Computed example of a mutant assay.
Amino acid sequence: MDHEPLPSEGHAEVRIIAATPEAARRVAEVLRRAFASDEQRSYPAGSEGATRLHLTIDTTHAAEPARSWLATSEPSLEDHAHTDEV
């Protein structure tokens, strides 16, 4: 496993692998509607027609629906780990 540098604080690297470029673009579009992002980079992905798409998203600049979801998904002090969680 190669050791890529971690993205800066508040950012996430997303890699999408899809059978077609169109399928990868549709997933990337959903992410761009939820978060600010840089330009996507696409590469061939092994099998014929498959695409690997890389995208960096800024999780500090979420769109309103994502911001609402992120706020409600934050663990509270009252939340406890499930018994099977480490």
Rank of each mutant, 00 (worst) to 15 (best):
24 A>K: 00
74 E>N: 08
48 E>T: 12
61 H>P: 01
63 A>R: 05
69 W>K: 12
75 P>G: 01
17 I>H: 09
21 P>S: 09
65 P>E: 08
13 E>H: 14
74 E>I: 12
48 E>R: 11
51 T>W: 05
29 E>C: 00
19 A>G: 10
5 P>W: 10
19 A>W: 08
30 V>A: 13
16 I>W: 02
39 E>I: 00
52 R>T: 07
26 R>C: 02
59 T>M: 14
75 P>S: 06
24 A>M: 09
45 A>H: 08
73 S>C: 02
55 L>H: 03
59 T>P: 02
21 P>L: 10
61 H>W: 02
20 T>W: 09
15 R>I: 15
53 L>V: 08
72 T>E: 12
64 E>R: 04
15 R>E: 15
20 T>L: 05
19 A>E: 13
50 A>V: 01
5 P>Q: 10
43 Y>A: 11
59 T>D: 06
14 V>N: 05
27 V>T: 12
20 T>V: 06
80 H>V: 11
85 E>D: 09
84 D>G: 04
66 A>S: 03
3 H>Y: 07
38 D>T: 07
31 L>M: 12
79 D>H: 07
77 L>H: 09
40 Q>M: 14
59 T>K: 07
61 H>K: 15
61 H>Q: 15
21 P>E: 05
59 T>Q: 13
75 P>Q: 05
30 V>G: 14
37 S>W: 00
52 R>Q: 13
49 G>C: 05
41 R>A: 13
2 D>I: 11
29 E>G: 12
46 G>P: 06
7 P>I: 03
86 V>H: 08
45 A>T: 05
42 S>N: 10
60 T>M: 14
79 D>E: 11
60 T>E: 15
39 E>G: 04
77 L>E: 14
61 H>R: 15
5 P>F: 04
15 R>N: 12
79 D>Q: 04
50 A>P: 01
51 T>H: 10
68 S>D: 13
85 E>G: 00
31 L>C: 01
15 R>P: 05
35 F>A: 05
85 E>V: 03
